[in-house]
Design a protein around this nucleic acid. Structure first.
Lengths: 148, 148
DNA sequence: CGATTGTCTACTAAACTGATAGAGATATAA
DNA sequence: TTATATCTCTATCAGTTTAGTAGACAATCG
């Protein structure tokens, strides 16, 4: 699962991407439009500024804007940034590799083999899509109803 | 990330798959070979028995065996079972669907759109692979060394 | 019987997560 | 130069989840 924080981050960045080159967007505007707790969003956006993905302006008329063209911000990058890695298992991370605890030697671990392949497939897709892509949304699933 | 428990589960099932039709395998044998804490493994295997994936035999010469032909146990099933869902976000689960908290309406959420596509890709791969597949392992990555 | 092996429920310590508090820094403009 | 609007940073917190353990119990075999 992506953490709530990662999800907020992605939606905040999408919000900024949609307003690319339209001047700074205030934190409160993002929080309200995206339904993200205000205080939590300050933490998230400050982090994005530190990471260089977002530029901030203080004072009147201040706010946030994307530091890069949306087309250059790929979802894979965002997730790697907030989560450390795309992999579903530490030993399958290609960037932030770590050994798993209580595992087999990596050279023998089929779970690792499988998870590496999966990671690469996920990466291929997530690194193909950027904040500039119009993602088609899908209708919500029919609501499951409580058994009467 | 997959939880440690899910990883243990998968490796335990792989162990049983490798010994399919060779009689019951004792818990201690699995724990030792797969480097899984003994007591924790009891919890895991009992759960698998309850789910019907594994059959147990008590007493002398007892142990565990897979309840199905390994070819019929797909990785997607195992993960759905232990983790509830393959999706990276609750609203993108096709089986165990749940709304995300503090999100946009699902019909408008691009994060959901993206995560649904990703989920489907992951599912395609994980449901194609079964415990019977010989997964090619990959050499461990070169060790990063501490800066001197 | 008694040794062996699995089953079940409860419990716990540690880590993580989501969120908030509040003092501080900076920019603008009147 | 002061008032105000904004963002920034560090600390803290309560709740949940996770990994793992304890220990009494049940079944099977010889």
């Amino acid at each position: 699962m992506l953490s709530q924080k990662t999800r907020y981050t992605i939606r905040a960045l999408q919000h900024l991407a949609d307003r690319w080159r339209q001047g700074p967007v205030r934190l409160d505007a993002i929080a309200e439009a995206q339904n993200i707790p205000r205080k939590f969003l300050t933490v998230i956006l400050s982090e994005m500024v530190r990471e260089g993905l977002v530029i901030s302006h203080r004072g009147r008329e201040g706010g946030y804007e994307l530091a890069l063209d949306p087309v250059d911000v790929r979802y894979g990058d965002i997730i790697r940034l907030t989560r450390g890695s795309l992999a579903l298992v530490p030993c399958a991370a290609r960037n932030a590799h770590e050994h798993c605890t209580n595992c087999l030697p990596e050279a023998e671990c089929r779970l690792r083999g499988l998870m590496l392949t999966l990671r690469d497939e996920m990466a291929a897709m997530l690194d193909r899509m950027s904040l500039a892509d119009p993602i088609e949304v899908e209708a919500p699933f029919a609501e499951e109803r409580e058994p009467a």
